[in-house]
């Protein structure tokens, strides 16, 4: 897959959807394409985060440790981004991500990610917007949950 195809993938990700194609190309060029085999682990819960991954091809599962062992909490497919929280704030990974099929990803290192944000404020704005959306959604869920309980 060439750079231009990767740019197409990036455009489909909400976080990057409003960013100009030329900047996305830079992001694609400077990030590393990493291939995982089925069963390979992208990162483990508790590790310090050093990169985010964008799934280009294949599926992955998100697992969380609990008293009853690993629980699968989500599935990821092409065009999903994973691991971006841990590189934004210095917290350990909150979950383990494992390849369910052979997986092609773009790996954006923490360093590169911050460099892009400082260089292109519009990426930062998009990320803020995305995070605000998520916060909004979480709050909404919490409100519903509280209402149901009360």
């Amino acid at each position: 897959m060439s750079l231009n195809e990767e740019v197409e993938v990036l455009r489909k990700i909400p976080l990057f959807s409003r960013i100009e194609p030329s900047k996305l190309k830079l992001l694609a060029f400077t990030s590393e394409r990493v291939i995982f085999k089925r069963g390979d682990v992208l990162f483990r819960q508790g590790d310090m985060g050093d990169a985010a991954y964008i799934l280009i091809e294949g599926d992955a599962e998100v697992l969380v440790n609990s008293s009853r062992g690993e629980i699968r909490v989500a599935r990821l497919g092409a065009n999903d981004i994973v691991g971006e929280i841990a590189i934004l704030v210095d917290i350990p990974r909150t979950a383990t991500v494992r390849a369910e099929t052979d997986l092609v990803t773009l790996r954006i290192s923490k360093e590169l990610f911050f460099r892009l944000i400082t260089e292109f404020p519009q990426i930062a704005v998009e990320i803020m917007r995305e995070l605000a959306h998520r916060l909004e959604a979480t709050t909404e869920q919490l409100r519903i949950a509280m209402t149901e309980r009360g």
Binding site: S22, L26, R115, E119
Partner: peptide, 20 residues
């Protein structure tokens, strides 16, 4: 052409330049 497209409007002091 690609290099100019990607890096042309970057601040030349940026380390990103050196690395990529």
């Amino acid at each position: 052409e690609v290099m100019v497209e990607l890096f042309g409007d970057l601040d030349p002091d940026q380390e990103i330049f050196e690395r990529y």
